[in-house]
Write a protein that binds this DNA or RNA. Structure first.
Length: 263
DNA sequence: ATGACATCGTATCGATGA
């Protein structure tokens, strides 16, 4: 089985490219982030025509997460238990959807950006990660044999070599010690980030800004990851960061990350 | 090569992204 995650930056704009990628790569389950659509705007038909069912959680033009599966759905959950809200009035944003697909518990996650270190969005980001970690630990405690994958856009660059120039990011979000600690806490909770495990090369990026020729100049960030529970880790036979998907007109600014699982 | 910011709304710019 092949599972993947991709921040598509608007599913309506990218639907042809995303469905073509699913079919071409033989991906069975795709966790999608930044759909930027309400449920009634999601292009379900294009996915269904290719053999994929979709479960979506969206509200407006911001955020939005989904899972596309051609191996079925069980136990779909929108928002993770304890997920923090943001704003005044506080709103539970569409940033997490979970489902069991082909025996794997997949969570499609869009971690808050944080904006600036002194912005309320940054505290929200840290709280969001801490509460997700608590849940992830509880899920594993409930069933140590569970095959769980926490995949998505984490908006954290865990290592200095995950940013094209650490000096440029000094004092900014994504690289702070608190964010890196919050990310690493999932490892302490028993999960292994599989793309790093299999693709440890430095300066391997998953995101390149649209501006200033960032992609041709390889000025990128590594912020998309897939944490696997111990039982799932045992099944992972390979990982891919599909850098080619950043090429050409109409690309998302993120590329897919892929895990191959033994049958 | 891969190319000079993109997305959405109700819009002719602002908010958001990272």
């Amino acid at each position: 089985m092949r599972i993947a995650s991709w921040n598509v930056n608007s599913v309506r704009t990218r639907v042809d490219r995303v469905v073509a990628w699913l079919e071409r790569t033989g991906t069975d389950v795709l966790a999608i982030q930044e759909t930027k659509a309400r449920d009634d705007q999601f292009p379900y038909l294009a996915f269904e025509a290719a053999g994929y069912e979709v479960e979506h959680l969206g509200s407006n033009q911001w955020n939005g997460v989904a899972i596309a599966s051609r191996v079925g759905f069980d136990d779909v959950v929108r928002h993770f238990p304890g997920q923090p809200a943001f704003g005044d009035p506080a709103v539970l944003e569409p940033r997490a959807i979970g489902a069991t697909c082909g025996g794997v518990r997949v969570w499609s996650l869009y971690v808050p950006n944080g904006r600036e270190l002194d912005h309320p969005h940054y505290a929200y980001k840290l709280d969001w990660l801490a509460r997700l970690r608590d849940q992830a630990e509880a899920w594993l405690a409930d069933d140590p044999a569970a095959q769980i994958c926490l995949m998505g856009d984490w908006n954290v660059a865990p290592l200095d070599t995950d940013v094209w120039d650490p000096a440029v990011f000094a004092g900014k979000t994504h690289v702070s010690a608190a964010e890196r600690d919050a990310f690493a806490a999932f490892g302490a909770a028993g999960y292994t980030e599989m793309t790093r495990e299999i693709l440890p090369a430095e300066n391997t990026y998953t995101y390149w800004d649209y501006q200033q020729l960032a992609f041709p100049r390889n000025k990128g960030l590594r912020i998309d990851f897939a944490y696997a529970s111990p039982a799932l880790r045992e099944r992972v036979t390979g990982a891919v960061i599909d850098r080619d998907e950043r090429k050409g007109k109409g690309a998302s600014d993120h590329v897919p990350i892929v895990l191959d699982l033994a049958d």
